[in-house]
Amino acid sequence: MTGRMLRKRALSRDDGPMVWSVIDEGVLHRPIGSPQIVREQLEYLTEVARHPKVAVQIVPYGAKAGAGLLGAFGIAEMRGIPYTVYVEGQPHGRTISDRGLIAKLVTRYDTIRGEAHSQPLSLKVIEEAIRIWI
């Protein structure tokens, strides 16, 4: 089974994880693949964003969260305590367990999220982008 299907199944478990994603608005308009592929991906994103264990927020073009332009990263928490961060990079990402660096990245995430649209408005922004790709 593919990783994506395993992750999707994990959300359905009673003890499944919560997922909070903050996405730059530019991603909704970047032509990666055909218009049909982009539209299908955005439709899937709206489906996932409606899941009760998922929050998707869009950072608008006008946001001043320059920290979000420094690169993608994911924070893993257990019982509300961040314990590791995966930082995207080329050619390979890296996992960070240093408490000081984790604290800095959590602050960066909070800064980016503070500039993002609310979840309901983010869903509307994604739905508007879907109409552009038709």
Rank of each mutant, 00 (worst) to 15 (best):
S97I: 15
E88G: 09
G62R: 14
P91H: 12
V22N: 03
S12Q: 13
V85W: 01
P60V: 04
E43P: 02
T95N: 04
L28V: 03
T84W: 05
R30E: 06
M1E: 04
E47H: 12
S12V: 01
E88C: 08
L69E: 08
M5D: 11
G3N: 06
P17W: 14
T46S: 13
K104F: 04
L123T: 11
L45T: 10
I23C: 02
T2F: 01
R131P: 00
I102Y: 04
I102D: 06
R39A: 12
Y61V: 03
G33C: 06
E128F: 00
E25T: 06
I126W: 00
F73K: 04
I96D: 06
R131S: 02
Q90S: 12
A116M: 04
P91N: 05
I102L: 08
H92M: 14
Y83D: 14
I75M: 04
G80M: 09
G26L: 01
T2Q: 04
L69R: 15
A10K: 15
Y44M: 11
R94N: 12
L11I: 07
I81E: 15
A116H: 02
K104G: 10
P120H: 08
P60T: 07
L123A: 12
R131E: 12
I132P: 00
G89L: 10
E47G: 08
E115Q: 10
V38S: 00
S34M: 01
R9G: 05
I126N: 00
V87Y: 04
G68N: 09
L69I: 07
G16C: 11
L28N: 07
G93T: 07
S34H: 10
G89Q: 11
A55L: 09
V56R: 02
Q90F: 10
I23W: 02
S34E: 11
E47F: 10
R39T: 02
E128W: 00
L28I: 05
